[in-house]
């Protein structure tokens, strides 16, 4: 009886593992498929047959078009991060202090760019910015990307603040710290990992954003995703796969950084007491 049960248990377990492996393969394989394509020594976007090469990475580095696109994406993403991070952090601090019933409404408004179809957001920005002269320029793109990145910052920072003991700020106040000092000396250092993680998300949001960039960016702001998009349409070269691989590596590194920061923040907040032996 026991043997039968444990055999069926083993079978069930094997089936579970197999199913999970399939799901992971479904999620990850299409993304990873681009990596071997980028190592193809030949001139076509096919899987390499015999021999690998980094020649398409060299092409990327040597092509002014690609390096320009990389630089554009990087500049726009840095500017977006610089705007969205402080704004989102302040919004998260305000929200965490809020006891009003309007709070869910405000959270919904802040998250609106996240849930709207991105093409709607892009068209809306286009028609709003066109009469203001903000299309075909970097300023409009940075503003639009900041609006898209802001909800991520708010969500991540708000989560890191909600784990914070509210008595810490009360203690700081009772000890004589005015509100700004409480913010700078107590709240900011404790929320710093969360804020940094929010900044990483803001950077990533802008760095790989395509749709809004297609509508608003001018020829001078050709970003990396636009370059890839048009590259696929015009000249199907393995250089696109190489660029994609670089993007995968960058995203993975940044996500890992954000996760490390999140854990560090948690450790900082929940240090458990040492035992009270002989105290």
């Amino acid at each position: 009886m026991i043997a039968v049960r444990s055999r069926s248990g083993r079978l069930g377990r094997a089936a579970l593992i197999a199913f999970c492996a399939l799901v992971f393969a479904f999620l990850v394989l299409p993304i990873l498929a681009v990596v071997p394509l980028s190592l193809n020594p030949g001139g076509f976007l096919v899987f390499p047959e015999g021999g690998l090469s980094l020649r398409w990475y060299r092409t990327l580095a040597d092509s002014p078009q690609w390096t320009h696109a990389f630089g554009n994406s990087f500049k726009i993403a840095v500017a977006t991060t610089a705007i969205a991070t402080p704004l989102g952090t302040l919004a998260a601090i305000g929200l965490s202090h809020m006891r009003s019933r309007a709070k869910p409404v405000i959270v919904a408004l802040i998250s609106a760019p996240l849930v709207m179809p991105i093409v709607v957001v892009a068209v809306a920005f286009y028609f709003l910015f066109a009469p203001l002269g903000l299309v075909n320029g970097p300023v409009g793109l940075v503003i639009a990307h900041s609006a898209l990145a802001l909800p991520f910052v708010v969500i991540v920072v708000h989560a890191s603040l909600s784990g914070l003991d509210p008595d810490l700020l009360r203690a700081a106040a009772s000890l004589g710290a005015p509100p700004l000092t409480q913010l700078v000396r107590v709240l900011a250092p404790l929320a710093a990992p969360g804020i940094a993680a929010g900044a990483v998300f803001a950077f990533m949001t802008s760095f790989d954003e395509t749709t809004v960039a297609l509508f608003i960016a001018g020829p001078e702001q050709r970003t990396l995703p636009i370059q890839m998009f048009e590259g696929v349409r015009e000249q199907i070269s393995p250089a696109i796969a190489a660029a994609a691989t670089l993007l995968i590596v960058a995203s993975t590194l940044l996500l890992g950084t954000a996760e490390l920061l999140r854990r560090r923040g948690e450790r900082l907040r929940t240090g458990s007491a040492a035992p009270d032996v002989g105290a």
């Binding site: 458990s272 040492a274 035992p275 009270d276």
Partner: peptide, 10 residues
């Protein structure tokens, strides 16, 4: 650091 102290010490 506070997290290296016991409850009574804290």
């Amino acid at each position: 650091r506070p997290d290296a102290l016991s409850g009574g010490q804290r």
